[in-house]
Write a protein that binds this DNA or RNA. Structure first.
Lengths: 203, 203, 203, 203
DNA sequence: GATGAATGAGCCTTCATTCAT
DNA sequence: AATGAATGAAGGCTCATTCAT
């Protein structure tokens, strides 16, 4: 008689082990043997639960993206709908939240980013996430500026987030979340000022 | 005496083959066997010229970074010393030049970026490049704004470059260099405007 | 649960295959591929059970030394404690027993001997065995002669054993165990005679 | 126009380099690349002068055996023809002379011993040397004892030499040449005493 | 559900040798 | 005479996966 409810334990356990191993030895050297060892179980079990290594890798990435999406929604739910600056700061803030700064998460994410270029499944996940971030930002910005401008500012902010994040990932001292928030806030408030002024001048 | 002048042929040939193979199958699957085959030579020759796979990988990365540095210097040499906006646009432009957009170069670079987290030699190269870009930008910006602000704007522009570049790397249609330049120019003129205004007010 | 009890089968099987292969092609050419083939299993299994080639090699040597030690103890248990000549002949006899004369064992041993000069793990095993033989011999001899002489005679007998054994190893017709025993017995009785005479003279 | 007289320089140079490399890394890891490096020349030259690695290896062994034979003859030429003990001591002494104790020579010899079991060319050389030692000893002994006894004593002495030599080769502190000479001298004088006494009794 | 036994493919590297110069 | 370019074979090892228990 099989133990019931094991999947609920094993799957997160193995996903976490995957991130830890990638953090320790890099994506290139993250073997199922090491992941199994890190999780304290037999490597064979990975096939049992994920059908193979790629299944585990995809599940791990999906888990990271889900955490981010949930975190953003949670933050947004506490900010008034019309507080554009506040809502964008919430999105940015979650992208640099403590969970996203977890070293294992950062390295895993970057590893996926590189891998996604050659793995269609990962690529799909990555692009969905990318577009979601852009659309969240655009949605907020459109309240304050024309569509086209909103599109460009959203692109800029998304690029700023990714760029700062990327540089932080490579920096041995980790990233500076305050810097990230400050840079984006500074840019955005400057922009909104100018935009409203411009609007005031040429309505 | 042996055949002479081969190193000058073989080394670039193998470096190019490395990028092509990484482009085709990803860093993870870029074996010396495939690289040798791509170059049309025996895999053993890689040890002959680079002492091993890691030597080749490092040489490849170094080659990419050198190309970028040379390209930037070339562009800068055609822009007047005091044309801040023009000089920064030159730097940005080279980062999105046709050579940097070469798909193989893009994927190789991103692969290195991920790998650099676990490979000290690559990490060192990466950070040198990072700092050079920052210092180039800061140097130009300091003519137009206080040191501290210059530092922050330089960081932002570098992040914008990397962020846009990164998102372009994942995009099957490649990146849009015009968009990149426009975003950065827009961002920069915003700051230069403010800076000159401030200077006018509080000299 | 996995197939059970395999280690008890596989380990001796692989150790025996190692000796056979060394016998056939020499230590230099004894590859894991050949050993696996000889054992009728996949070469990978060597890593599974011995962690690598060196683990197997060490285990093989340890096995040979253990067989010798056990054989000596078995023989000694049937000889009266005070029968010096008999006990030493037992030790010598086991060193030239049929199992020790097994061609594969002989060649493997000599191969290890040469290899032990550059492999610390094998060297340690070799020296333990060396010292054990010496101490066994000395223990018996001390009943019949002064300590210092016992030490020298023990050294001599050990050298005789190794020397005869070594020459036998090179000889295509194998070694002559009777000759070995006769030489040692002759040498030994020469010393035991002298010793007892001396004792009679200077009590 | 080729440089003349190079073979006279190159051959001993490469032979010595071979022994040094075997001493440093063992026969197993003594590659032509390392030998060439040790000699300060290109590895290719080994093929030029010795036709391949095995040619060099054989030449090296032959060189060692020649040195021993010459040394023995030199020593014997200074000892009166009828001084049996002295002549045997000369033979033994040369076997443990400073040149034979040269660590590189010792390790090379032992390596050859092991290798000779699987390499016909080396085996032949080894056995010639073996028989020569035996016949030298027998020749001397026959002056003092019957043929059959001489045969056995010669075998014993040869075994003692090889055994002590072998144990010395494995000992990190090197071998003790005095011990070797003392053991053989002690054995032999004891034997000659008893032999002459026996002869006196039963003429 | 979970394990370890077992495998075959693939990887990087070392090596002895040949060849053009 | 001597070199380094170049190769193909082989080596030990790691890996993801399958399977019997």
């Amino acid at each position: 008689m099989p133990k019931v409810g094991m999947p609920k334990i094993r799957r997160p356990q193995l996903i976490r082990a995957t991130m830890d191993v990638i953090n320790q030895v890099g994506f290139l050297n993250a073997s199922v043997a090491k992941i199994g060892q890190q999780a304290g179980v037999s490597p064979s079990i990975i096939n049992h639960y994920f059908g193979g290594k790629s299944g585990l890798v995809e599940a791990t990435m999906r888990s990271i993206l889900q955490d981010l999406a949930q975190g953003i929604n949670l933050r947004l739910s506490t900010v008034p709908k019309n507080d554009t600056l506040g809502r964008i700061e919430a999105i940015v803030g979650e992208n640099f939240s403590s969970h996203q700064q977890d070293e294992a998460v950062v390295k895993t994410w970057l590893a996926f980013w590189a891998q996604a270029m050659h793995d269609p499944a990962l690529n799909r996940l990555q692009r969905v996430n990318e577009k979601r971030l852009l659309s969240y930002l655009r949605l907020e910005l459109k309240r304050s500026m024309p569509h086209q401008q909103a599109q460009m500012v959203a692109t800029s902010i998304a690029a700023l987030i990714d760029g700062i994040w990327l540089r932080g990932a490579l920096n041995p001292q980790g990233m500076d979340p305050d810097l990230a928030r400050r840079v984006v806030k500074d840019y955005l408030s400057l922009y909104l000022q100018t935009a409203s002024k411009n609007r005031a001048i040429k309505p």
